[in-house]
Design a binder for these strands. Sequence first.
DNA 1: GTCTATAGCATGATAGAC
DNA 2: GTCTATCATGCTATAGAC
Lengths: 204, 204
Amino acid sequence: MTTTQEHRSVEERRDQLVDAALAVLRDEGVAAVTTRAVTSRAGLPHGTFHYCFATKPALFRAVLERQLRTAMAAAFATDTAALAPEARITAGLTAHLDTTRADPATALALVELFALARRDPGLQDVADWEQRAYVAAVRAHLEAWTDDRRFRWTAPPETLARLLVALADGVSTAWLQDRDDAAAAATIALAARTTATLVDGSAS
Amino acid sequence: MTTTQEHRSVEERRDQLVDAALAVLRDEGVAAVTTRAVTSRAGLPHGTFHYCFATKPALFRAVLERQLRTAMAAAFATDTAALAPEARITAGLTAHLDTTRADPATALALVELFALARRDPGLQDVADWEQRAYVAAVRAHLEAWTDDRRFRWTAPPETLARLLVALADGVSTAWLQDRDDAAAAATIALAARTTATLVDGSAS
DNA sequence: GTCTATAGCATGATAGAC
DNA sequence: GTCTATCATGCTATAGAC
């Protein structure tokens, strides 16, 4: 009988460490995400770290990539095809806010991590990609909405998508600060009301 | 002749250290703002730190308070009284973006610092105050615009103020990521166009 | 692959001479 | 008040036994 841990593939280890890193991040913030804290949270010896990730920034990159995938999946999970444009916009902005509300501590920590990534030359591409992917996804949705020809947008989809992403971001940021559900709902309702003026057609 | 530094009031020293902290913050990010880096940048011995600030968070507090004052002053510096509502909104959102554009490195670093402040129980009140002060200032402006009775808002000023702050925040965040001036201008123009639909009156 | 031990360095904070 | 020297701790990363 040895105390040696079972063999696991490096990829499994990496996932395990990313999980642990997210947990530390949520509970104690970016500054507390040290190689020691992560391995300790994962229940692994410290030495594990450096044969799974070359450096600490490499772990951050893995965390950001994981986050990007989950956030994209969550943001567009609900189907709003049956709704009128204004209600769809409300639903979309609310869905984004809901992911923030579902786990504010993680959302707050991810803001910290993204801020760090934007400054780190080795991580900027992940931050870039995250924004691009978001705008592109929103734009694709906006264009799909007009496929049935019942209405059209009176503004370029790209610009409208950027506006909606900026709104979703700003509203979530504000909510993270004051946790005021009613105010956030009112802001979203007003945003949807004004944005719906860009609809031209029978459904408007 | 001694090498001893001249006496300066503690308040002067504190200002000196806050300046240095902002410089380090801008150049190397939050993680690089150590007591040693700050005193060294200020050209002062390390020991200076702890008789000006009790702890490092106390320095961060001072930096945030300074930042709040300068940001508020800059954001509402330009007088837009002569403009119609839509142009005023464009001017306001552009003014906010311009402070970001004038010094992106500092803006990026302050995002990091605010993210940290939102998580630190000892600094949350500064972050709270910053948001409240911003919304209140925008709301005051919105209400002042209707003083001449030439138009009125068809939405509550508080909600409209929150919407505009969320927009300004989201637009600046997006610009910090892609540095796309044209896209930011288009987003602001569209935001102003939709928001101006909330104007009821002769000036609309 | 797995783990222990440790190198090598930076940190926040303090003690104590002047 | 001012400054030097230092303490105790924590960090990333690596070397090397198994």
